[in-house]
Design a binder for these strands. Structure first.
Lengths: 232, 232
DNA sequence: CCTACCGATCGGTAGG
DNA sequence: CCTACCGATCGGTAGG
């Protein structure tokens, strides 16, 4: 026995609005279904890894049939790359907004944010991107990098460079002030490691019941990394 | 056309000594073959991930036929757990030896190593375990954890607890001295993150041609994390 | 996007 | 440990 399309949409929980007429080619809501796929893929790739997730898992999670993801993406790798691209684009946008908010706040009192304040903003935003709501995309980028093809890496790398570029002048200033010790490039990588590793141990659910908040993490990171400025 | 066993050993590069008589059941060198499997598995799991590596890949890398790994290990997960167990056991042994060497060296000049010296030893050993020769095992443990079953996790976790136990009093002392800032458990996790993340970016090959050595990394880590002691 | 399908590969096993 | 094999699953596609 087989099910008709309408019987299927009664049996399977889908978010589609009820009674919508069969779509013509011109009104395909590619964007929505594509977004559903990306979200499902990000979540599964994060939990089970890229190689450990089947395209069927993803299709099911997005309420589709087994072959349907390939209507939206050429192959499984392209889906992974899209997850990473989407995650990095959002991260770059959010980082820019966070920095602007910090600068505006300082401007209101006719000052300019200190390098310390800017670092705090960057760190806090990083924790949000890694651990906050909708935070599956960036962990996938960090931990599933090896499954990208050479060309795909190039594309995502340039987004990553955008993101990291904002850190450079801030860390440079702190290094010159003596607040950041060690070799600048090495210390930078170690700081990123300290932040990115939080994906492995931080449990947002437990935070609600008395654990550390993302603000606490950011405060702790600055305390740990930044030294007293050398007196002038 | 099929090849006989002896034609195969001529065609395929194997390390077996030539002309050795066919083994009887009593002289199976299980230990050696098992070790070969573990080493091959560790290397492949690190490079391609657990789910991205087939048991055939591992068998081939160890010079065996497709089904042969299952003579040594019940299934693929058991092989992964064995890689991690082996890695952690070695890491614990090496850490103990490194700490004893540090204590002996201090004893030779009738002193006791400072918490700073002990941390430097722990950090330097950690980099060696992560990045030094034969360093595939621990990265696999760090990054393929999710593929372990519940019982397997328990077993490896207790080894991990052994390893981390050595850090606790050292970090505690430094925290009391004011050299380590922030919440002790959070700062500890951030430090581990900074070290463990090096697996993602450190290239031992480039170190030979002018890059940072493992000693440089350890020095840098201490500079970054440890503050001037508060004057008494 | 679904239906129906394919070839390839995978983890694992029986028997020697 | 090898030989020979199996059932299941996987990424992907043709046609509508």
């Amino acid at each position: 026995m087989t099910l008709t399309a309408s019987e299927l949409s009664a049996a399977v929980p889908v978010r589609r609005s009820r009674g919508r007429p069969r779509k013509t080619a011109d009104e395909r809501d590619d964007g929505n279904r594509r977004q559903d796929l990306l979200k499902a893929a990000a979540r599964l790739f994060r939990i089970k890894g890229f190689a450990g997730t089947s395209t069927r898992d993803i299709a099911t999670a997005a309420g589709m049939q087994a072959g349907s993801p390939f209507y939206h993406f050429e192959n499984k790798e392209a889906l992974l790359a899209a997850v990473m691209r989407e995650g990095m684009q959002r991260a770059v946008v959010r980082q820019k907004a966070a920095l602007e908010a910090t600068t505006s706040a300082a401007a209101a009192s006719h000052t300019t944010p200190s390098a310390r304040q800017l670092l705090r903003t960057l760190v806090r935003n990083q924790f949000d991107v890694l651990l906050g709501p909708d935070s599956d995309f960036i962990p996938v980028m960090l931990y599933e990098w090896r499954y990208l093809s050479e060309e795909q890496r190039g594309e995502i790398s340039s987004l990553k460079a955008d993101y990291e570029a904002a850190w450079v002048p801030v860390l440079h200033t702190l290094h010159q002030e003596g607040a950041l010790r060690g070799s600048l490039p090495i210390s930078r990588l170690m700081i990123f490691g300290a932040l990115n590793w939080s994906v492995q141990w931080y449990d947002p659910a437990r935070a609600a019941s008395g654990g550390a908040s993302l603000d606490d993490l950011a405060d702790n990171a600055l305390l740990l990394f930044l030294h007293e400025p050398t007196s002038p």
